[in-house]
Write a protein that binds this DNA or RNA. Structure first.
Lengths: 209, 209
DNA sequence: TCCTAATCTGAACGATGTACAGATTATTGT
DNA sequence: ACAATAATCTGTACATCGTTCAGATTAGGA
């Protein structure tokens, strides 16, 4: 656990007009949640970390929950970054490469949950739960969702999965990977079962190797 | 949203020596979390609801988190009750009955998440996350886990699933059902995909109908 | 019936989320 | 260049929270 001391106290600049306070608050909150968990951060501490008074935050967020929710939204993009990087390790047009990328996609999700547990909990917790409409719209635009769609299209194009089962690909893969990751992260299942989950997903989708 | 007013103010009994304060606090906290979500309850409100001073709780729980965690532990049993009731609707020794019970098990989990969302979030949130050892030990003794094991044994005994895949039954079924329930409850997936998840689980386990 | 242990109260402390009035700075129009 | 206006941030204040602790109340055994 590092110190998390105020930053701006070093800078000679006055406190008024920070520059980009909204982003600074989100970044600070992200880092603090990452280290301590969403249940242990306070608006005041985030403001102090940025070097600003607590009230300043209320010009950008209606309340603390909105700030936290802002952090959550931004995390889906960071997860997609990790997934993209993981998939890049398996280039190529072959069926084997496409399958390897598909597994890398799931494994990156799992790794994210294990290495960034506090952020993972935030993303799928109360603060990021939206109404059906908004959430589905947000999901359709999220890069992580699009990566999953494309990965399944890749498999289908190469005849690596049963075409009749293709429509269920996204929901099945996401459900199984997310469920396993959640249960493992919270300690309900041991870590070593995850690869079996990936195997099971492939079987469900009728993978032919 | 109902009122949640203090109860004991009506009773003529004095405040000292409540009787079974520990259980009363857990019950009250359960009901209040059920209605408002774990992020919106205070130790003081729970104590007031029971008709007791805030400090009284500290004779039974070291802190607020311990009370909440106590609530969470007790919920796994209530989930098992629902699952048992749901399975009882499909009696019989036939393969079809065993399959129907297996699906009822998953559907009851899903229904629990949808009707008792606040409690569901608590069960699998930070407050109920244990170290690997404790959690796995607790799980092995939980009735919900045992129900799942028996249901899979039933399927295997009747030759309804691929014997080679039997060992993966628990982790796969729980992961997929939990993942789908979580994602649907938080709005990331639409409700109507759940039955497809049950189909996919059966395919993964090599169900022969 | 008195003594002791168990149980609960009441007051207090520091920290929190939030509201609001006013101070400070940036920007725009002339 | 300069004043007027808008945007941004501070400081203070308040109710509420979790938690501590000294002491009041009660139960139950000697």
């Amino acid at each position: 656990m590092s110190a998390l001391k105020p930053l701006r106290s070093l800078k000679p600049r006055a406190n008024y007009h920070h520059g980009n306070l909204e982003k600074a608050l989100i970044d600070a909150a992200t880092e603090m949640i990452r280290e301590s968990g969403v249940e242990h951060i306070s608006l005041r501490a985030v403001a102090a970390y940025v070097g600003v008074s607590p009230s300043a935050a209320y010009h950008y967020f209606p309340d603390k929950d909105a700030l936290i929710s802002g952090v959550g939204q931004s995390l889906f993009d960071k997860l997609a970054d990790r997934q993209e990087a993981a998939m890049a390790a398996y280039p190529g047009e072959s069926r084997e490469a496409a399958l390897a990328r598909f597994r890398a996609l799931g494994r990156a999700y799992f790794d994210w949950g294990n290495t960034e547990t506090n952020l993972f909990r935030l993303m799928f917790g109360v603060f990021c739960s939206l109404d059906q409409k908004d959430a589905l719209a947000a999901r359709d635009e999220s890069r992580a969702w699009i990566l999953l769609q494309r990965s399944l299209d890749d498999l289908a194009d190469r005849g690596a999965i049963n075409p009749a089962l293709r429509p269920y690909g996204e929901i099945l893969a996401w459900s199984a990977v997310h469920g396993a990751t959640s249960l493992i992260v919270e300690g309900h299942l041991p870590k070593d079962v995850f690869e079996s989950i990936l195997d099971a997903i492939e079987i469900s989708l009728g993978v032919v190797k």
